[in-house]
Nucleic acid binder design. Structure first.
Lengths: 249, 249
DNA sequence: CGCGCTCTTGAGAATACTCAACTCACGTGG
DNA sequence: CCACGTGAGTTGAGTATTCTCAAGAGCGCG
């Protein structure tokens, strides 16, 4: 049931004409409820899923059921870009909020991509950015404190949302429970709770319900060693000139 | 200085004719000594580097100089596959042993790839596999014990080397110091040392100098929750039928 | 022979975890 | 309208894993 897409933008710049065509032409667009499974861990669905609306996450689990969230997915992200070249998905994906998913058979996507180098390059770029984000996250998991990881997460989400910034302060809704945040950070929910209280006590953050307010992005970025360059967003200065961390908490 | 490549195989299957052509035609092939910097962190070299011989690693660092190794690179791997679509590299790469590097300007690589869909798909697949490996590693860093991470690392390297297996036992040379292993695992060298002693005491491993012997891959894979499927190697059964973990330590 | 690098060991400390209980907000049904 | 149940957030106390600092042993190389 092709229909025109709500998304005009994506993290890869404006939604390219080719991608629009692919999604409008060959895709089915479907809603899912919060918590729904969008991609099966170790599944072989053969479909590429584009998150047209809503939040989701990618995760992997250990044998004893512990979960690591590998990515928080925002509108305009692909749920499983690697499905284009790998037969099976190594991770699962679930909806955090009600979502709208545009799905295309990977065969159709690749067929069009072979004809349109621009689309192919968009795919390549999408996976490369996933890579940069995962690499950055591995650095956080392996080498940064709980507090720094939490700060980094908030900074990243704030920047990716491109929320309206009032000066140096950002406000947004984060549809993640502390337990889910713990699964992103590789921590326990209890420890996330206490770390969050630290950040609040330092005046870096405020939370009311699911609404997060970053008091000073510069200060929080300092704590989380956050430099937005790795996101490769057109809207962010290509780095090198870091106006961001000239301040301290 | 084009010359014929020593590599006949790569992790992506036999080295495709197109890749051979690219590397033989437009590339410069250069040797580097152990420890040499192959890719600059945050650099913008504009070159794709193919590791024709030797070991290397990809890494990222924190502000205070701590290092996380993001990938161990073996012959046949690309050092920086994302250079194809991203202008700046988020990580650095260094040689672990003396290496031979085949380097191509990313513009040349992409130019050829636009003409040869097979090459483009090889690139896409290479990045997708990087992604799968990084995702798996994030799971290890976030949710697995020091012992499990170490076991996982040994299993992964053994499988990727495709070393000759004597029954269930693997032997290979690992040109990593314990400090470098610590940087892979997100641990301190001291703790790596002690964890290694644990694995040895359990009879899972032996080490003599840089030579590692995995006594029982099945048992070690059990400890490290290692399932080779995520490597997407042609030589490994596509998973589903796991003959690997029917045994325990 | 001595220097440097890696590996090893010890002891104490920090970070993060476990278990358990309690609060709070919210929605449902009696 | 209120009792109840549920899920999320919070708090406390004790524990475990991992880190830090420090020093010593082994080994290769100049």
């Amino acid at each position: 049931m092709p229909s025109s897409l709500p998304m005009k933008r994506s993290p890869f710049g404006d939604l390219s004409a080719d991608l629009q065509a692919l999604l409008n032409g060959a895709s089915t667009q479907r809603p899912f409820g919060a918590g729904a499974s969008l991609v099966e861990e170790r599944g072989t669905s053969g479909h590429l899923h584009f998150l047209a609306a809503g939040w989701a996450y990618r995760y992997a689990t250990t044998r004893d059921g512990m979960r690591q969230i590998l990515a928080v997915l925002l509108p305009g992200d692909f749920c499983n870009p690697d499905s284009l070249s790998l037969p099976r998905s190594e991770y699962g994906a679930r909806a955090l909020t009600p979502v709208t998913l545009s799905s295309v058979a990977t065969t159709s996507a690749m067929k069009l991509a072979r004809q349109r180098p621009e689309l192919m390059q968009l795919f390549l770029r999408a996976i490369a950015i996933e890579n940069a984000m995962l690499g950055r996250w591995a650095l956080c998991l392996g080498r940064m404190s709980a507090q720094a990881r939490l700060a980094h997460l908030f900074c990243e989400v704030a920047v990716r949302l491109e929320g309206l910034t009032h000066g140096d302060s950002y406000t947004f809704d984060l549809p993640l429970t502390q337990e889910q945040v713990a699964d992103v950070l590789g921590l326990t929910p209890v420890h996330v709770n206490r770390t969050l209280q630290n950040l609040r006590a330092q005046g870096l953050l405020e939370t009311r319900g699911r609404t997060v307010t970053i008091r000073s992005m510069a200060a929080l970025a300092q704590v989380g060693e956050f430099d937005p360059g790795y996101l490769h967003r057109p809207s962010v200065a290509p780095s090198g000139s870091d106006e961001m961390d000239k301040r301290s908490a």
